[in-house]
């Protein structure tokens, strides 16, 4: 048995989601190799080589791989799969983009957004926005798996000394090309990896009021999220969205402010360790999943909350 884990990275740093994917690969079993596909991504390959339990790192470098275009990723991964029984990638927007292409090329049904690996053939995955969990046994010879990073422990990033192999890359004629990107420039932790997340909903009233959350987030070292309602209302960009169709988070502390708790939002945060809900409507469904609920006007509660954490030593800036 051998498993190929496709690393998530930005050509400079290895994303922690890769470590989670390695843990999932270990549960499938066999030798674990990591593919670093990107441009000028030598530092990523070096980091991947240090992950405990990794046999080999395979590095594919090409300018056309810099932005992980699905077609280009497919061209690199599919030929490699002759040597592997399974491919595992984190279920990020990068992984979700290329993995099904690999699966279709191998004529196998992808296992999407897997939350638990029971054995080499049996996987658990959420369906219906996490309102049901489906256990499936794959009859395919090879497995293509995307894993939900929040449900796996990170593998040890240190302790390994795998060799790094440079692959020769032939991407053929690509029919897609990168044009540009607008990435949010934030010093805050990434939503999916943050230990504390504070999210706002429609109750925030407008985008301007999200500064109240920003200010608390900066003190706590937290990430700021939002419900789909807040995104739909145009308060914040879509990359803030937590939920079935946005990001799935499972921080130690999740603070939901002015969020009613629609099914699709709960799907994205209900695995958080501690959930706090602040909402003026005591009937809001969010209180049914909250460990601590505060029925209050958020415009009164947030300034007070900031004062209280200040007393605990969480200082501004």
């Amino acid at each position: 048995m051998a498993v190929l884990v496709v690393a998530e990275h930005d050509n400079e740093e290895l994303n922690e989601a890769t470590l989670k994917a390695v843990t999932a690969a270990q549960a499938i079993g066999g030798d674990i190799d990591i593919l670093c596909a990107g441009n000028d991504c030598g530092s990523v390959a070096e980091a991947a080589a240090k992950i405990e339990g990794v046999r080999k790192v395979r590095c594919a470098k090409d300018p056309a791989l810099e932005h992980f275009l699905a077609e280009a990723m497919e061209a690199v991964i599919v030929p490699l799969m002759d040597e592997y029984d399974a491919m595992v990638a984190p279920a990020t927007t990068v992984g979700k983009n290329f993995a099904p292409r690999v699966a279709a090329k191998l004529d196998v049904m992808q296992l999407s957004d897997v939350t638990a690996v029971e054995d080499a053939d049996t996987f658990v995955r959420p369906i219906y926005a996490g309102n049901a969990m489906m256990t499936v046994k794959s009859g395919d010879a090879k497995k293509v798996v995307t894993v939900r990073p929040t449900t796996f422990q990170a593998a040890n990033a240190q302790g390994g000394a795998a060799e790094v192999e440079e692959l020769s890359v032939d991407l053929g004629d690509l029919k897609s090309q990168f044009v540009g990107e607008e990435l949010s420039d934030s010093d805050r932790p990434e939503l999916a990896a943050a230990k504390i997340v504070i999210s706002g909903g429609r109750g925030m009233g407008n985008g301007e009021n999200f500064h109240m959350l920003d200010s608390i987030a900066d003190r706590l070292g937290a990430a700021v999220g939002a419900s789909r309602a807040a995104v739909d209302a145009g308060f914040v960009p879509n990359e803030y969205q937590v939920g079935q169709t946005g990001k799935v988070v499972a921080p130690d502390l999740y603070i939901a402010v002015g969020i009613s708790g629609a099914i699709q939002h709960l799907a994205g945060m209900k695995d958080s360790k501690t959930i706090v809900a602040i909402n003026k409507d005591e009937e809001a469904p969010i209180f049914q999943v909250a460990d601590y609920g505060l029925v209050a006007d958020l415009f009164d509660a947030l300034p007070k909350f900031e004062e209280e954490i200040d007393k605990l030593g969480y200082k501004a800036g």
Partner: peptide, 13 residues
């Protein structure tokens, strides 16, 4: 495209 860090634009034939 809506990607994890923001928006990405690609041209596809």
């Amino acid at each position: 495209r809506e990607v994890d860090g923001g928006l990405q634009t690609i041209k596809i034939n």
